[in-house]
Amino acid sequence: MFVWFHKLASPPFFYRFAQKLAPWLGWLSLLVILAGLYGGLWLAPPDYQQGDGFRIIYVHVPSAMLSMFAYMVMATAAAIGLIWRMKLAHAVSAAVAPLGASFTFLALITGSLWGKPMWGTYWVWDARLTSELILLFLYLGYIALNHAFEDRRTGDRASAILALVGVVNIPIIHYSVQWWNTLHQGQTIFFGPKSEMPPSMYIPLFIMILGFMLFFAAFSLKRLQVEVLQRENKSAWVRELVETT
Protein backbone atom coordinates (compact mmCIF):
# COMPACT_ATOMS: atom_id res chain seq x y z
CA MET A 1 0.00 0.00 0.00
CA PHE A 2 2.69 2.44 1.05
CA VAL A 3 4.83 1.52 -1.91
CA TRP A 4 1.86 2.20 -4.15
CA PHE A 5 1.41 5.66 -2.64
CA HIS A 6 5.07 6.35 -3.10
CA LYS A 7 4.83 5.35 -6.73
CA LEU A 8 1.76 7.52 -7.20
CA ALA A 9 3.77 10.55 -6.17
CA SER A 10 6.13 10.05 -9.10
CA PRO A 11 4.90 12.22 -11.97
CA PRO A 12 5.08 9.71 -14.87
CA PHE A 13 3.27 7.01 -12.95
CA PHE A 14 0.67 9.47 -11.75
CA TYR A 15 0.13 10.86 -15.23
CA ARG A 16 -0.72 7.44 -16.71
CA PHE A 17 -2.82 6.56 -13.69
CA ALA A 18 -4.87 9.77 -14.03
CA GLN A 19 -5.21 9.27 -17.77
CA LYS A 20 -7.01 5.99 -17.09
CA LEU A 21 -9.00 7.02 -14.03
CA ALA A 22 -10.27 10.50 -14.96
CA PRO A 23 -12.67 9.49 -17.77
CA TRP A 24 -14.27 6.82 -15.60
CA LEU A 25 -14.83 9.28 -12.77
CA GLY A 26 -16.13 11.86 -15.21
CA TRP A 27 -18.77 9.61 -16.76
CA LEU A 28 -19.72 8.22 -13.37
CA SER A 29 -20.27 11.75 -12.05
CA LEU A 30 -22.49 12.51 -15.03
CA LEU A 31 -24.65 9.46 -14.26
CA VAL A 32 -24.90 10.29 -10.56
CA ILE A 33 -25.72 13.95 -11.25
CA LEU A 34 -28.43 12.96 -13.76
CA ALA A 35 -29.95 10.64 -11.17
CA GLY A 36 -29.81 13.41 -8.57
CA LEU A 37 -31.45 15.86 -10.98
CA TYR A 38 -34.27 13.44 -11.69
CA GLY A 39 -34.83 12.98 -7.98
CA GLY A 40 -34.53 16.64 -7.14
CA LEU A 41 -36.39 18.29 -9.98
CA TRP A 42 -39.05 15.71 -10.67
CA LEU A 43 -39.61 13.26 -7.80
CA ALA A 44 -39.14 15.53 -4.77
CA PRO A 45 -42.32 17.26 -3.58
CA PRO A 46 -42.45 21.08 -3.42
CA ASP A 47 -41.50 22.63 -0.08
CA TYR A 48 -44.49 23.63 2.03
CA GLN A 49 -43.14 27.17 2.46
CA GLN A 50 -40.91 27.84 -0.53
CA GLY A 51 -42.85 25.87 -3.15
CA ASP A 52 -40.65 24.81 -6.05
CA GLY A 53 -38.18 27.61 -5.33
CA PHE A 54 -36.37 25.38 -2.85
CA ARG A 55 -35.12 23.19 -5.70
CA ILE A 56 -32.12 25.48 -6.08
CA ILE A 57 -30.81 23.65 -3.00
CA TYR A 58 -29.73 20.74 -5.20
CA VAL A 59 -27.05 22.83 -6.89
CA HIS A 60 -26.44 25.45 -4.19
CA VAL A 61 -25.50 23.18 -1.29
CA PRO A 62 -23.17 20.86 -3.28
CA SER A 63 -21.40 23.94 -4.74
CA ALA A 64 -20.99 25.52 -1.32
CA MET A 65 -19.66 22.27 0.15
CA LEU A 66 -17.17 21.82 -2.68
CA SER A 67 -16.02 25.43 -2.38
CA MET A 68 -14.89 24.78 1.20
CA PHE A 69 -13.70 21.24 0.60
CA ALA A 70 -11.49 22.41 -2.30
CA TYR A 71 -9.82 25.03 -0.08
CA MET A 72 -9.01 22.37 2.49
CA VAL A 73 -7.53 20.13 -0.20
CA MET A 74 -5.53 23.07 -1.56
CA ALA A 75 -4.15 24.04 1.86
CA THR A 76 -3.34 20.45 2.85
CA ALA A 77 -1.47 19.91 -0.40
CA ALA A 78 0.31 23.25 0.09
CA ALA A 79 1.48 22.15 3.55
CA ILE A 80 2.70 18.80 2.20
CA GLY A 81 4.50 20.57 -0.61
CA LEU A 82 6.24 22.99 1.74
CA ILE A 83 7.20 20.44 4.39
CA TRP A 84 8.33 17.53 2.22
CA ARG A 85 9.17 19.60 -0.84
CA MET A 86 6.98 17.39 -2.96
CA LYS A 87 6.49 18.78 -6.45
CA LEU A 88 3.29 16.88 -7.11
CA ALA A 89 1.67 18.35 -4.00
CA HIS A 90 2.20 21.91 -5.25
CA ALA A 91 0.71 20.87 -8.57
CA VAL A 92 -2.34 19.58 -6.68
CA SER A 93 -2.86 22.99 -5.03
CA ALA A 94 -2.53 24.80 -8.33
CA ALA A 95 -4.93 22.37 -10.04
CA VAL A 96 -7.62 22.50 -7.38
CA ALA A 97 -7.70 26.30 -6.95
CA PRO A 98 -9.57 27.21 -10.19
CA LEU A 99 -12.14 24.48 -9.56
CA GLY A 100 -12.64 25.69 -6.00
CA ALA A 101 -13.02 29.26 -7.21
CA SER A 102 -15.60 28.29 -9.81
CA PHE A 103 -17.69 26.39 -7.27
CA THR A 104 -17.47 29.34 -4.87
CA PHE A 105 -18.75 31.51 -7.70
CA LEU A 106 -21.61 29.06 -8.33
CA ALA A 107 -22.52 28.97 -4.64
CA LEU A 108 -22.72 32.78 -4.66
CA ILE A 109 -24.78 33.02 -7.85
CA THR A 110 -27.23 30.27 -6.92
CA GLY A 111 -27.46 31.66 -3.39
CA SER A 112 -28.40 35.08 -4.66
CA LEU A 113 -30.89 33.67 -7.21
CA TRP A 114 -32.44 31.78 -4.32
CA GLY A 115 -32.42 34.89 -2.18
CA LYS A 116 -34.48 36.94 -4.63
CA PRO A 117 -37.81 35.08 -4.13
CA MET A 118 -37.08 34.40 -0.44
CA TRP A 119 -35.69 37.74 0.75
CA GLY A 120 -36.95 40.03 -2.01
CA THR A 121 -33.46 41.09 -3.12
CA TYR A 122 -30.63 39.34 -4.91
CA TRP A 123 -28.09 40.20 -2.26
CA VAL A 124 -28.43 40.26 1.49
CA TRP A 125 -25.36 40.61 3.71
CA ASP A 126 -26.14 37.28 5.23
CA ALA A 127 -23.33 35.61 7.19
CA ARG A 128 -23.02 32.64 4.88
CA LEU A 129 -23.13 34.59 1.63
CA THR A 130 -20.58 37.06 2.99
CA SER A 131 -18.22 34.28 4.10
CA GLU A 132 -18.55 32.69 0.69
CA LEU A 133 -17.69 36.02 -0.96
CA ILE A 134 -14.54 36.35 1.18
CA LEU A 135 -13.64 32.78 0.26
CA LEU A 136 -13.83 33.77 -3.41
CA PHE A 137 -11.42 36.66 -2.69
CA LEU A 138 -9.02 34.22 -1.00
CA TYR A 139 -9.10 31.95 -4.05
CA LEU A 140 -8.50 34.86 -6.41
CA GLY A 141 -5.52 36.02 -4.32
CA TYR A 142 -4.05 32.52 -4.39
CA ILE A 143 -4.46 32.17 -8.15
CA ALA A 144 -3.06 35.65 -8.82
CA LEU A 145 0.04 34.97 -6.71
CA ASN A 146 0.54 31.51 -8.19
CA HIS A 147 0.72 32.98 -11.69
CA ALA A 148 2.67 36.12 -10.81
CA PHE A 149 6.14 34.55 -10.92
CA GLU A 150 8.09 33.64 -13.99
CA ASP A 151 9.54 30.62 -12.22
CA ARG A 152 6.81 28.08 -11.54
CA ARG A 153 8.51 26.74 -8.41
CA THR A 154 8.72 30.15 -6.72
CA GLY A 155 5.07 30.80 -7.53
CA ASP A 156 4.13 27.41 -6.10
CA ARG A 157 5.93 27.94 -2.83
CA ALA A 158 4.87 31.57 -2.37
CA SER A 159 1.22 30.77 -2.98
CA ALA A 160 1.48 27.72 -0.71
CA ILE A 161 2.44 30.03 2.16
CA LEU A 162 -0.53 32.23 1.31
CA ALA A 163 -2.86 29.20 1.29
CA LEU A 164 -1.65 28.22 4.76
CA VAL A 165 -2.11 31.75 6.12
CA GLY A 166 -5.59 31.66 4.61
CA VAL A 167 -6.50 28.36 6.21
CA VAL A 168 -5.49 29.64 9.65
CA ASN A 169 -7.59 32.73 9.00
CA ILE A 170 -10.73 31.05 7.67
CA PRO A 171 -12.19 30.06 11.05
CA ILE A 172 -11.49 33.57 12.37
CA ILE A 173 -13.09 35.17 9.32
CA HIS A 174 -16.07 32.85 9.53
CA TYR A 175 -16.59 33.51 13.22
CA SER A 176 -16.14 37.28 12.94
CA VAL A 177 -18.59 37.51 10.05
CA GLN A 178 -21.16 35.57 12.04
CA TRP A 179 -20.64 37.83 15.04
CA TRP A 180 -20.98 40.91 12.84
CA ASN A 181 -24.10 39.53 11.23
CA THR A 182 -25.97 38.84 14.47
CA LEU A 183 -24.94 42.30 15.64
CA HIS A 184 -26.42 44.14 12.68
CA GLN A 185 -29.21 42.03 11.30
CA GLY A 186 -30.62 40.01 14.10
CA GLN A 187 -32.18 36.86 12.77
CA THR A 188 -31.74 36.09 9.11
CA ILE A 189 -34.17 33.77 7.40
CA PHE A 190 -32.69 30.35 7.65
CA PHE A 191 -32.52 28.51 4.41
CA GLY A 192 -30.85 25.27 3.59
CA PRO A 193 -31.40 21.69 4.56
CA LYS A 194 -33.93 21.49 7.36
CA SER A 195 -33.85 18.61 9.76
CA GLU A 196 -37.49 17.76 9.15
CA MET A 197 -36.94 17.33 5.39
CA PRO A 198 -38.61 14.15 4.13
CA PRO A 199 -36.37 11.47 2.56
CA SER A 200 -37.72 12.23 -0.92
CA MET A 201 -36.14 15.69 -0.52
CA TYR A 202 -32.85 14.91 1.14
CA ILE A 203 -31.90 11.72 -0.70
CA PRO A 204 -31.58 13.63 -4.03
CA LEU A 205 -29.45 16.17 -2.17
CA PHE A 206 -27.04 13.47 -1.01
CA ILE A 207 -26.92 12.05 -4.53
CA MET A 208 -26.12 15.50 -5.93
CA ILE A 209 -23.36 16.04 -3.35
CA LEU A 210 -21.86 12.69 -4.32
CA GLY A 211 -22.11 13.58 -8.02
CA PHE A 212 -20.40 16.95 -7.50
CA MET A 213 -17.65 15.25 -5.48
CA LEU A 214 -17.04 12.78 -8.30
CA PHE A 215 -16.99 15.64 -10.80
CA PHE A 216 -14.46 17.45 -8.63
CA ALA A 217 -12.28 14.35 -8.39
CA ALA A 218 -12.40 13.69 -12.13
CA PHE A 219 -11.54 17.19 -13.26
CA SER A 220 -8.96 17.88 -10.56
CA LEU A 221 -7.14 14.85 -11.97
CA LYS A 222 -7.44 16.27 -15.47
CA ARG A 223 -6.20 19.69 -14.38
CA LEU A 224 -3.45 18.05 -12.39
CA GLN A 225 -2.27 16.29 -15.55
CA VAL A 226 -1.96 19.66 -17.26
CA GLU A 227 -0.07 21.14 -14.30
CA VAL A 228 2.31 18.17 -14.25
CA LEU A 229 2.93 18.44 -18.01
CA GLN A 230 3.72 22.14 -17.69
CA ARG A 231 6.14 21.58 -14.84
CA GLU A 232 7.87 18.57 -16.41
CA ASN A 233 7.84 19.59 -20.07
CA LYS A 234 11.60 19.06 -20.44
CA SER A 235 11.89 15.75 -18.61
CA ALA A 236 12.63 12.40 -20.25
CA TRP A 237 9.30 10.75 -19.54
CA VAL A 238 7.36 13.58 -21.18
CA ARG A 239 9.52 13.24 -24.28
CA GLU A 240 8.84 9.54 -24.36
CA LEU A 241 5.13 10.13 -23.85
CA VAL A 242 4.96 12.63 -26.67
CA GLU A 243 6.70 10.25 -29.06
CA THR A 244 4.54 7.24 -28.31
CA THR A 245 1.20 9.04 -28.64
Binding site: G26, P46, G51, D52, G53, R55, I56, V59, H60, S63, P98, L99, S102, F105, L106, I109, T110, L113, W114, K116, P117, F215, F219, K222, R223, Q225, V226, L229
Partner: peptide, 30 residues
Amino acid sequence: MGGYAAYVWPSYGIVLVVMLANAILPGRRQ
Protein backbone atom coordinates in the same frame (compact mmCIF):
# COMPACT_ATOMS: atom_id res chain seq x y z
CA MET B 1 -41.49 25.47 -11.47
CA GLY B 2 -44.65 26.59 -9.66
CA GLY B 3 -43.92 30.21 -10.55
CA TYR B 4 -40.24 30.06 -9.59
CA ALA B 5 -38.95 29.32 -13.09
CA ALA B 6 -37.19 32.71 -13.31
CA TYR B 7 -34.94 31.71 -10.40
CA VAL B 8 -34.64 27.94 -10.62
CA TRP B 9 -33.76 27.60 -14.31
CA PRO B 10 -31.11 30.33 -14.43
CA SER B 11 -29.45 28.70 -11.39
CA TYR B 12 -29.30 25.34 -13.12
CA GLY B 13 -28.26 27.01 -16.37
CA ILE B 14 -25.27 28.79 -14.91
CA VAL B 15 -24.20 25.67 -13.01
CA LEU B 16 -24.37 23.75 -16.28
CA VAL B 17 -22.30 26.36 -18.14
CA VAL B 18 -19.57 26.57 -15.48
CA MET B 19 -19.37 22.80 -15.04
CA LEU B 20 -19.20 22.22 -18.79
CA ALA B 21 -16.40 24.77 -19.06
CA ASN B 22 -14.56 23.01 -16.25
CA ALA B 23 -15.05 19.68 -17.98
CA ILE B 24 -13.95 20.73 -21.45
CA LEU B 25 -11.13 23.22 -20.94
CA PRO B 26 -8.54 21.03 -19.12
CA GLY B 27 -8.68 18.32 -21.79
CA ARG B 28 -8.23 20.90 -24.54
CA ARG B 29 -5.33 22.50 -22.72
CA GLN B 30 -3.73 19.11 -22.26
